[in-house]
């Protein structure tokens, strides 16, 4: 079958985005509880608890340091899990894509819609954390609202590779590899809890290739009210991971479903 290499974005993607939004709305109560409850727990427990011993880190209160780290890692987690467990469920056991593919929608539209939804969900969760952080006095000023569009981008960044995992998965257990080998190391190494500069030099170099590091570098100064540097580099890295992930996922899902 002849297929263009780079799929063109079509409005059809919004049909799938809309579908997922409607499902999310049905479960609004429990999901909001988790959205607000979890960051509250983290920020109170770790931010205040550890913050008492640490005091300041990189010229900001530890609570602000931690909150800004979590504001960067939360969209990673949200988008990765949505693009793995939920997408896989719709693609294979639930046969939702099979039904959609008999309409004018194509694989590229479906996956574009999934990515948009992953990013949307990342912002919804991220906004809840931002609100909690502001309530606890960890946020300095309105420029912190720029965090929200960046979280959208971070959602796309991580949705892309996670879609590739879904396209390759033969079952849910497969995702454990990706979470254990990539997501968890990023969470621990990319500067969420402490500055990357405190890592051994060799590891610092490696960490610069991880997308979460760039998300933290963008979000932290916005939350703390400090100047943001190397904006183009950070945005470029985040966009590249998302785009490459998307293109590879489209190719793999076509190969898997259109046989």
């Amino acid at each position: 079958m002849r297929m263009t290499l780079v799929p063109r974005f079509r409005n059809a993607a919004f049909a799938l985005w809309r579908r997922n939004t409607l499902v999310w709305r049905k479960l609004l109560g429990p999901s909001l509880l988790i959205n607000f409850g979890e960051p509250f727990l983290y920020l109170i427990g770790l931010g205040y608890g550890l913050g008492l011993f640490i005091g300041e880190m990189m010229n900001m209160p530890y609570l602000t340091f931690l909150a800004s780290g979590i504001l960067a890692s939360s969209p990673m987690n949200t988008a990765s899990f949505e693009a793995m467990y939920s997408v896989y469920t719709r693609m294979i056991p639930q046969r939702t894509y099979e039904a959609i593919l008999t309409t004018p929608m194509e694989v590229a539209d479906i996956l574009a819609g999934e990515m948009l939804w992953c990013a949307t969900k990342a912002v919804i969760n991220g906004a809840a954390i931002l609100a909690v952080a502001a309530l606890l006095g960890a946020v300095s000023g309105w420029q912190a609202l720029w965090v929200l569009p960046i979280q959208f981008l971070v959602g796309l960044t991580f949705a892309g590779p996670a879609l590739v995992m879904s396209a390759l998965a033969r079952g849910y257990d497969f995702f454990n590899y990706y979470v254990t080998l990539l997501i968890t190391p990023m969470f621990v190494l990319s500067g969420v809890f402490y500055p990357v500069s405190s890592l051994p030099p060799a590891l610092q170099g490696v960490v610069q290739f991880l997308p979460l590091t760039h998300a933290v570098d963008l979000i932290r100064p916005l939350v703390a009210g400090q100047p943001v540097t190397d904006v183009a580099l950070h945005l470029g890295v985040l966009a590249a991971y998302g785009l490459v992930g998307y293109l590879v996922a489209v190719k793999l899902v076509r190969r898997r479903l259109l046989v």
């Binding site: 409005n11 059809a12 049909a15 809309r18 579908r19 959609i100 309409t103 004018p104 929608m105």
Partner: peptide, 12 residues
Amino acid sequence: AENLRIYGHYFG
């Protein structure tokens, strides 16, 4: 009914 509605969205 939602199944029909969602499916209708796919056709625009």
